[in-house]
Simulated scan of single mutants.
Amino acid sequence: MDNLQFRRNRRLRNSATLRSMVRETVLRKEDLIYPVFVVEGEDVKNEVSSMPGVFQLSLDRLATEIDEVVSLGIPAIILFGIPTEKDAVGTGAYHDHGIVQQAIRFVKEHHPELVIIADTCLCEYTDHGHCGVVEGEKVLNEPSLDLLTRTAVSQAEAGADIIAPSNMMDGFVAAIRQGLDAAGFIDIPIMSYAVKYASAYYGPFRDAADSAPQFGDRKTYQMDPANRIEAMREAESDVMEGADFLIVKPALSYLDIVRDVKNSFSLPVVAYNVSGEYAMVKAAALNGWVDEKTIVLETLTSMKRAGADLIMTYHAKDAARWLGEK
């Protein structure tokens, strides 16, 4: 052992203070975006059975939720709407008095400082559950762009700070950017779901948003989970079309894609820690199999380490509390 040569990497781990001084990745409350589900009706607070701690809320129950989000220091929410009535073209998505438009105005009246991101899609509003106009069993691209643009403009008119189109139609960023600019919303950024996979991890979300497709699947417009190079093509298209943020969804099984996108483009990258990822941790924690606080903070930190600037997560409120304890 006298001539043994090796590095003493443990020297920088000798105390909690020293470890914090050399920590490379820091998770902050300001990195978090909290998803909120708003439904029509009164006095509604329905817990999503597959997502413990996540609720569908009517407008009259929304204030308490938003007050809590603001008090925890979370800077932004993303709004999803669940309408009472649906039709073939998702009219509720772009109606002036649609549920999301009402929710945007309500939140802005109570907390104007909170950044509101509007999810811009049709699947929650169509009776067939697809993210666009359907002919037979085919989702049409260009007719869908027209309705998505109308939706984005109506959300901006209601007061949304950021438009987040999630439909994965070809050209959706270009169409929405053109529509927003023509309507005078040149300063409203687009947070594009640039890389969105056709993932099994979305199952609980479809319970929360009542958005499961009534036939087929979404594999003709969402990405094949096996593909990596295609993700770069999708992200590049959105950058060229005018996106201001790039979302990778899901996050946990796609951290390599988060890193690829971060390395390839200069825009802020958003990781969406999706419903299935949340539900698995919650189920394990409720059964006592994992320490929820430790595993959630480790998971979210891994997303930042992979390159995410922001994280959409249903854990946001709990994470903010735990980060506050530190």
Rank of each mutant, 00 (worst) to 15 (best):
Val248Met: 05
Leu255Tyr: 05
His95Arg: 12
Leu148Cys: 02
Trp289Val: 13
Val248Ile: 15
Glu85Ser: 15
Met240Ser: 14
Asp170Val: 14
Lys317Cys: 05
Pro143Ser: 11
Ala93Glu: 01
Thr151Arg: 02
His111Trp: 15
Ala103Ile: 04
Gly92Glu: 02
Met303Pro: 04
Lys317Ala: 07
Arg105Cys: 12
Ile163Gly: 03
Thr313Gln: 06
Asn263Ser: 11
Lys29His: 10
Gln222Phe: 13
Tyr193Leu: 09
Tyr94Val: 09
Gly136His: 11
Phe55Gly: 06
Arg206Trp: 09
Ser166Arg: 10
Gly324Val: 03
Asn9Met: 08
Met51Asp: 03
Phe172Asp: 05
Val134Asp: 08
Asp170Tyr: 12
Glu236Met: 08
Leu297Met: 12
Ile82Ala: 01
Glu135Arg: 15
Val39Lys: 01
Asp291Thr: 07
His110Tyr: 09
Glu113Trp: 04
Glu325Gln: 10
Val248His: 03
Arg259Asn: 14
Arg218Tyr: 12
Arg228Tyr: 12
Val195Ala: 09
Ala235His: 07
Gly203Val: 08
Tyr278Val: 05
Ser154Ile: 00
Ala208Cys: 07
Val115Gly: 05
Cys121Asn: 07
Tyr254Ala: 14
Ala200His: 13
Ser211Tyr: 01
Ala93Asn: 06
Ser20Asn: 12
Asp146Thr: 15
Ala93Gln: 06
Ile78Pro: 00
Ser154Val: 01
Val36Gly: 01
Pro225Val: 04
Asp161Val: 11
Phe55Val: 03
Arg28Tyr: 12
Asp256Trp: 11
Ala103Asp: 03
Asp43Cys: 03
Thr64Pro: 01
Asp2Met: 10
Ala152His: 00
Arg19Phe: 05
Thr25Val: 14
Tyr201Phe: 14
Gly129Lys: 02
Ala164Glu: 01
Val239Gln: 09
Leu72Cys: 07
Gly41Arg: 11
Val139Lys: 05
Ala243Met: 12
Glu230Asp: 12
Leu59Asn: 05
Ile104Ser: 06
Ala209Gly: 08
Val69His: 02
Ile188Asp: 04
Tyr314Ile: 05
Glu137Met: 11
Ala16Gly: 13
Thr220Ser: 14
Ser237His: 13
Ala231Tyr: 03
His315Gly: 00
Val139Thr: 06
Asp96Phe: 05
Glu236Ala: 14
Val115Trp: 10
Arg11Pro: 07
Tyr94Cys: 01
Ala209Arg: 00
Val89Cys: 03
Lys249Leu: 07
Asp96Ser: 14
Asp181Pro: 00
Arg13Gly: 05
Ile311Ser: 02
Tyr94Ser: 02
Val195Asn: 10
Val26Met: 13
Tyr125Leu: 10
Lys45Val: 00
Tyr201Lys: 12
Gly276Asn: 08
Glu241Pro: 11
Ile99Tyr: 00
Pro204Met: 04
Glu124Gly: 06
Asp31Met: 12
Asp87Pro: 08
Gly81Trp: 01
Leu310Tyr: 15
Arg259Tyr: 05
Met223Gln: 10
